[in-house]
Design a protein around this nucleic acid. Structure first.
Lengths: 113, 113
DNA sequence: CTGATATATTCGCATATGCGAATATATCTT
DNA sequence: AAGATATATTCGCATATGCGAATATATCAG
């Protein structure tokens, strides 16, 4: 009785999405979009605790959103797939539109008060 | 001392993404992409508990990913922004590529064993 | 091998999330 | 108003997630 393949894909799809559900991880992905960076650089750039950076990177790595390349004592992380940034940009656009709609609504309501 | 606007946007961006981080909610969004549906229809289509459906819809509504329209005793939900589907499709593509890479790797390793 | 630096993992703990059952609310019909 | 149906909310509870501190591991220099 294997759980339906479709359900399994749904779970994996959600796992990829949930990698994006944290502000720090989104910031990491955008930072890597500028170019590869090692853990220390990311830690300083995003003002995170080193353990926190490492844990977030593990989550992104496990879901194949980032790749690593060792250079001596440093480990450089880079984006594994640019489409992640495209998706993030689309969703940021969705957010912007939603906020715009709410703002307009708020203004209309304010005028009538 | 308002917390930086940038940080607040990051949190909202993550909130939108985290709405996608559940298989049931992803299924709801794809179902609504086919056309508006009421809560009962979604509940049956996705084989969910009615309370569960309602709670998921509230999460999507709060983040402005879906809209509602009342029709008598029914409430019809629809997609608020098609870009959500575009983003989901992109991320599904990312997942597919990642699985493909792993599969290839697994095959190579199997041959060598 | 030893010390220094970079990165990863583990451990508690606090908070967040998802669920079904039960209950509340809203709308329509009669 | 009363019953029927649709939807939303609340309540416990179980599991998941994020965090900093501490610790472990890996790599390099000497």
């Amino acid at each position: 009785m294997e759980p339906s393949l479709e359900a399994e894909i749904g779970r994996l799809h959600a796992a990829v999405c949930s990698a994006l559900s944290d502000p720090k991880r989104i910031a990491i992905l955008y930072a890597l979009h500028e170019g590869p960076k090692n853990v220390t650089e990311l830690t300083e750039l995003l003002e995170l605790n080193q353990a926190t950076t490492s844990r977030h990177l593990k989550i992104l790595r496990d879901r194949s959103l980032v790749e690593t390349q060792r250079d001596g004592v440093h480990i450089y992380y880079s984006l594994a797939d640019e489409r992640v940034i495209e998706a993030l940009d689309l969703l940021r656009g969705v957010l912007a539109s939603a906020l715009e709609r709410r703002k307009t609504l708020a203004e209309v309501m304010t005028v009538r008060t």
